[in-house]
Design a protein around this nucleic acid. Structure first.
Length: 560
DNA sequence: GCCGTTTTCGGCCCGACTGTTTTCAGTCG
């Protein structure tokens, strides 16, 4: 069941942003951001909790949240939405453009969207404007390009939260999401929801508080844009053709085109209403029947990209994909010692509740200055973790760290310190714009460090915010395979990193993977389901993933 | 706006980088 937490957090996040843009006090902005983060990371459903009990939520924010929970917004948010055009908010999505410059551009030049900014630059209207020199202009152009590449797509976590919220809000006989979301694609353009139920469902849908705009509405399909700017299509389908509709609307288009070629060869017809031989229905109610009628087992949605899955299915050679149930632990997580929001004790208790055989705490290492890590603090944490171990006889607690890979491939702590950690994840957190050669050398050097077990979020992309770094990935994969360094599939939805296409390529080089949550909160631990989606899209089976292995085998891998 | 074993007022993760500025503002992690 969808929790209200994410919708509340998104509203507070938006308010913080608008408040900052309208000249609000920076410390108050931080209060809203902190509260949003705490609510998103709060383990209970906020709608069923005393809001004040969430750390970081005081009198004023509690009132706003309560109003939001009753009517889907709050007065101050409505006010600011009226003052700052939605497009100006989108301007801050342009990398290198923050709230200050965005508001400046709006007030001084009337630029009210990324599109308008592109036009203004094209017309040379930024020339000579105070604070906008040639370098800034070039950076903005580059940022606009990146934004365009990312498109209006949102990460799968945002889309999944929204889809689950919508599904929970509608009273249908049967309802589910299809499309790229069901295929667990890392970014989602729009959300497709199929439902069986009365036509009044459409009215209910249009009237929901999360609907900002109705784009189109008919008997069978309603399209809306939500307050988060995501398009959602709701389709009513006949109960008798549920399976065919799911098959059709799950896609991908390429998968369906390929499948329909097989259908046509047999003189049949496949549509969202069913698989037909003339007027005779061969399959319609169950999706499995569509595939079985074509002589193959049901194909998992995560494989439906026309990447060889149909031939594999026909040959009976579909991979035995890794699942969430295969995971025995998590090897990359944070606590409030650095930038997490839950304590060590809370995170460990939550991990135990998830039934893990092992669990690694990997707070940031000292070179990420804002985290203020020191060796002393790390060793104190280790002591606390060792003491906690006694309370968890069925779960091995591993003390790890997330190191920073420097520009030359070196990491923060010297070898003798690293040797004291059970798990070392090493990640790039700076110098993103090195040349391909430098970046490749940097990753290869990190792989060759015998103390490094896992390369964290390898491409360092942040969906919609930062492009992946440039490296010769095949070279990196060869180094990882040669040195026995695992590559991480970071499950945090805005990362989804490695991306699935690179996962599949890396697998061909014989690389092992670790599907980690990179959780900064208790609910963050559940994010592994998105990493499993990426892994499935990369055709991984359980054996490819080190944290499906039994404890002994994992310890062996870690060299202990 | 939130929070409290130095505080109910006065602090609030902080340093690096970049471009533009002649002493710093904005952005980012």
């Amino acid at each position: 069941m969808a929790r209200a937490n994410d919708a509340v957090a998104a509203a507070l996040e938006e308010y913080a942003e608008l408040f900052a843009m309208t000249g609000g006090d920076a410390f108050r902005v931080r209060s809203y951001q902190k509260a949003a983060k705490a609510i998103a990371g709060f383990p209970e459903d906020i709608a069923a909790t005393a809001v004040r009990s969430v750390p970081g939520v005081g009198e004023a924010i509690a009132k706003k949240v309560e109003e939001f929970l009753t009517r889907g917004s709050f007065r101050q948010l409505d006010d600011l939405r009226g003052k700052v055009p939605e497009g100006v908010r989108r301007l801050t999505r342009v990398p290198s453009l923050g709230p200050k410059k965005a508001v400046f551009l709006f007030q001084e030049l009337g630029i009210d969207s990324p599109e308008a900014l592109a036009e203004a630059i094209g017309q040379g209207r930024l020339r000579g404007v105070k604070g906008f020199g040639p370098k800034t202009e070039a950076n903005l152009l580059h940022g606009l390009e990146q934004l365009e590449q990312a498109g209006a797509r949102v990460d799968i976590g945002t889309a999944m939260d929204l889809a689950e919220q919508i599904i929970a809000s509608l009273d249908a006989e049967r309802i589910a999401y299809a499309g790229s979301l069901r295929r667990m694609k890392e970014t989602i353009g729009d959300i497709d929801i199929l439902a069986v139920g009365p036509e009044s469902l459409m009215d209910d849908f249009r009237g929901m508080p999360y609907v900002a705009e109705v784009i189109a509405s008919g008997e069978k399909k309603t399209s809306v844009r939500t307050t988060q700017g995501v398009q959602v299509d709701l389709r009513l389908v006949p109960a008798a053709s549920w399976g065919a509709a799911m098959q059709y609307f799950t896609g991908s288009k390429e998968h369906n085109v390929h499948l329909r070629e097989l259908v046509v060869k047999r003189g049949w017809k496949l549509s969202e209403y069913g698989l037909f031989d003339g007027d005779r229905v061969i399959a319609a109610e169950r999706e499995e029947d569509v595939y079985e009628a074509l002589g193959m087992p049901w194909i998992p949605p995560t494989l439906r990209e026309d990447g060889g899955e149909i031939d594999a299915a026909l040959a009976g050679e579909l991979p035995d994909l890794v699942t969430v149930a295969d995971l025995r632990g998590d090897l990359h997580t944070h606590t409030d010692l650095t930038d997490g929001i839950a304590s060590l004790e809370e995170m460990v208790a939550a991990a135990a509740a998830r039934g893990y055989s092992y669990y690694a705490v990997t707070d940031h290492a000292p070179d990420l200055a804002m985290q203020r890590m020191t060796l002393e603090r790390a060793l104190e944490q280790r002591e606390r973790l060792r003491r906690l171990q006694a309370d968890y006889p069925d779960m091995r607690l591993l003390h790890g760290t997330e190191l920073n890979i420097g520009p030359d491939g070196s990491v923060d702590w010297p070898e003798e310190v690293l040797a004291g950690f059970d798990v070392c994840v090493a990640s790039v957190h700076s110098h993103f714009t090195q040349s391909r050669e430098e970046m490749t050398r940097r990753f290869v050097a990190a792989c060759e460090n015998p103390q490094v077990h896992i390369i964290g979020h390898p491409t360092t992309r942040r969906i919609g915010r930062r492009p992946p770094v440039d490296a010769d990935w095949d070279e990196v994969f060869r180094a990882a395979a040669r040195t026995g360094t695992a590559l991480e599939i970071d499950s945090a939805a805005e990362r989804s990193d490695l991306p699935s296409d690179l996962v599949r390529r890396a697998r061909h080089h014989g690389v092992r993977f670790s599907i980690d949550s990179d959780a900064h909160s208790v609910p963050g631990l559940a994010g592994q389901r998105f990493g499993v989606g990426v892994a499935q899209r990369g055709w991984l089976n359980a054996d490819d993933v080190i944290n499906t292995w039994p404890l002994e085998r994992l310890l062996d891998f870690l060299g202990r």
